[in-house]
């Protein structure tokens, strides 16, 4: 067995779990891609395929006391955080029994019990909300952290820079995890990110900061581990920029003509986090091919069941239209 020197090296069991999570996300998104193409998905969806290592590695460090603020590319992190696959699918299908009872939809997957916080319509606000989660954690002395997932596009929102500063001024237990997939919708980071380096923004706000390859599960696992431990132990916020390729369009139905010919095929060939993880598990952790194939087969069953249940679920109760607008209805 290979000895790794850092304290954040994943265990063999940890790898088994991470692989399952990443494979589950990949299968889920591929299935959703096919369902969407067949016209069976009722709303807009943003697929996470290619970025799985990011969610899986971050969630490997999170406990029940921690908050994860999601982006609109929400399915992967929701699955990694452990939200119920059937409830996730029903929510994407806007059916009764969805995580948000069909009122949120794909971007807003939210499970309060798991402290999984749904995304924001105008991207970037999650950075500010995460500061609030962190404030509450510190106020209650819960020894927790709040992780804000942000896209590269969201980082150009003023609220994100404000939140970097606020978190640093208040020394909040926050980790800003930027999933840089190279595109804000259709606009490339090379055009829209001045300096083309989001990690460089951390030091400007007095934060430790690092950039890692999102195709390398081990690299993300280590960087996230350092940042989360820093926050948990009172060291304040950090920034982690995760360079994660996006295998599909911004949303389903995006013809992606703004991408170079062959770009996606090349990414899939060279920067697939799942292929890489599988190979290292076999090469360095003595997993057998048969063992990993068995995991893959098992996950396919879960996914079939989730999509079948979502397709058969009834629409939300019409009374939900006017429910949960307020918690206190006195005087209304």
């Amino acid at each position: 067995m290979t000895e790794l020197s850092t304290p954040y090296a994943p265990s063999r069991e940890g790898l088994r779990g991470a692989y399952r999570t990443m494979r589950r996300i990949r299968c889920f998104e591929e299935r959703l891609h096919a369902e969407f193409a067949a016209g069976r998905v009722p709303s807009s969806v943003h697929l996470y395929a290619g970025q799985e290592a990011s969610a899986a590695a971050i969630c490997a460090h999170l406990g029940a006391q921690d908050y994860l603020h999601n982006t609109h590319r929400a399915h992967g992190p929701a699955i990694a955080r452990g939200a119920d696959l059937i409830a996730i699918t029903k929510e994407i299908y806007l059916r009764a029994g969805g995580l948000c009872q069909g009122k949120g939809g794909s971007p807003h997957l939210h499970d309060a019990r798991l402290r999984l916080i749904g995304a924001n319509g105008g991207v970037g606000s999650g950075a500010a909300l995460a500061c609030g989660s962190a404030l509450a954690i510190r106020h209650r002395q819960e020894n927790g952290v709040a992780v804000a997932l942000l896209g590269d596009g969201a980082c150009n929102q003023g609220v994100v820079s404000e939140s970097f500063n606020l978190a640093s001024v208040w020394k909040l237990p926050v980790v800003f995890a930027i999933e840089n997939n190279g595109y804000a919708e259709a606009t490339a980071t090379s055009y829209a990110i001045a300096g083309d380096n989001l990690a460089a923004r951390g030091p400007a706000f007095g934060m430790p900061s690092t950039r890692v390859d999102g195709a390398d599960y081990f690299a993300v696992h280590e960087a996230a581990g350092v940042a989360i431990e820093c926050a948990r132990s009172g060291g304040g916020p950090s920034l982690v920029e995760i360079m994660a390729p996006r295998f599909y369009g911004h949303y389903e139905g995006d013809a992606q003509k703004y991408r170079a010919p062959g770009e996606v095929a090349e990414l899939r060939r060279t920067r697939d986090c799942l292929t890489r993880l599988r190979q290292r598990m076999i090469d360095e952790y003595q997993f057998s091919t048969a063992e990993i194939d068995a995991m893959d087969a098992e996950i396919g069953v879960d996914i079939d069941r989730a999509f079948a249940e979502a397709a058969a679920a009834p629409p939300p109760d019409p009374a939900l239209l006017m429910r949960d607008i307020y918690a206190d209805r006195s005087g209304l």
Binding site: A128, L129, L135, A136
Partner: peptide, 23 residues
């Protein structure tokens, strides 16, 4: 009693997040 930088978006957003988290 938390003084904030001149950052209404972050500080009001943080207040929303803190409220949702139970403060």
């Amino acid at each position: 009693v938390l003084d904030t930088p001149v950052s209404e978006a972050a500080s009001i957003g943080a207040a929303v997040g803190a409220a949702a988290a139970g403060l």
